[in-house]
Design a protein around this nucleic acid. Structure first.
Lengths: 141, 141
DNA sequence: CACCGTTAATTAGCCTTGCTAACCAGACCT
DNA sequence: AGGTCTGGTTAGCAAGGCTAATTAACGGTG
C-alpha cells in the first residue's frame, strides 16, 4: 500500500534530520567548527569572495562572518586582500594551509559515509545517488 | 560514466546538509527553537522520559537539557513528575498544550516539503521515499 | 545501623556563535 | 567640498552548548 505524499514528506524530513545529525557527529577534525569549515569549503569550491559574499552564501550576518573570518585568518587558513580599485572591499582567499585542511577534512568527513555506502548493494546506492540530486534541487528552490 | 562511491558519499553528504538547513529554515513557529521542538517531538512520539533519557536521546548534556526543560515547563508545554519509587528521578510529560503545539508544528513544518513533493513526478517521489528509508537506516547504525 | 560509593538532577559559570546597533572609511554624486 | 550610500568592522547582547561542583536519594557492606 502506497504512502500518501504527506507521509512521504514526514519520512523524508525525519530521515534528513537524522542523517544530517549523524554526519555532523562524524566530524573528523576538532580543529574546525562546522561553520568555519563551511567557509573554507565554500572558498575551495567556489573561489574567493568578499566578506559580504561569504555572509550571504552562508545566510549569516556580516559581523558574524567577520568574526569567523578573523578566527580563520589568525589560524592561517585564509588571507584578506584589499581591493585596489575599491578600497572598501576586501577579497578573502584560501591560503595553501587552508586548501590543505579542506582536502583533508573532506576526506575524513566522508570516510564514515563512504564506508556505509560500500556496504549497500548497488541498487540502493543508485537510489541514494538519484535522491541526492533531487534533494539538492529541492533545497535550492 | 558512473560516479565513484566516494563521489556519491560526498554528494549525499552535501545534499543532506543543504536540505536539512532548508527544512530548518522552514520552521513555521517562532515560539519554539529547534532544540525545544526536538524535545517536545521526542516526548510526543516516544512517550515520557526522565531528564537524562531526554538528554541522551538528543545527544546533549544533562545540564543543557535541564535548561531547555525549565524553559518548556515555564511555557506550560511539559511537567515534571517526581518518581514515587526513586525520588531522585523525575519523569517529564507533555501537557495538553505541549501535545497541541507538537501537532500544529509538525503540520506546518511538513507543509513546505509536501508542496515540493507534489510538484515532482511519481518516479522521483518513489526514489525519495526509498532513499528516506535507506537514510534512516544509515543514520541509526 | 552507619558509612561510603553511585546515580539523578540541578546550579554556577564559561565559551562559542548568532544577532543588532553603531561606527569608520572609501566611493560616488551634485 | 559636502552629503549620502556602501562595505567592513567593532561593541555589546542573547541563546544554547559545555564542564565542574552541589544536593538528594539509593544501596550495599562492615
Amino acid at each position: 500500500m502506497a504512502k500518501t505524499i504527506a507521509e512521504q514528506a514526514s519520512d523524508l524530513r525525519m530521515s534528513t534530520f537524522k542523517l544530517a545529525r549523524r554526519l555532523r557527529n562524524e566530524r573528523a577534525t576538532d580543529e574546525l567548527s562546522d561553520g568555519q569549515f563551511s567557509v573554507l569549503g565554500g572558498l575551495y569550491t567556489h573561489g574567493s569572495h568578499t566578506l559580504s559574499g561569504l555572509a550571504e552564501r552562508d545566510h549569516v550576518s556580516a559581523p558574524s562572518m567577520n568574526r569567523t573570518v578573523n578566527c580563520l585568518e589568525e589560524s592561517g587558513y585564509l588571507t584578506r586582500i584589499s581591493d585596489a580599485a575599491d578600497k572598501r572591499r576586501v577579497t578573502i582567499e584560501l591560503t595553501d594551509a587552508g586548501t590543505a585542511i579542506v582536502k583533508e577534512t573532506v576526506k575524513k568527513r566522508d570516510a564514515w559515509l563512504h564506508h556505509q555506502l560500500r556496504a549497500l548493494d548497488p541498487t540502493d546506492r543508485e537510489t541514494l545517488a538519484k535522491a541526492a540530486d533531487l534533494m539538492r534541487r529541492l533545497a535550492t528552490q
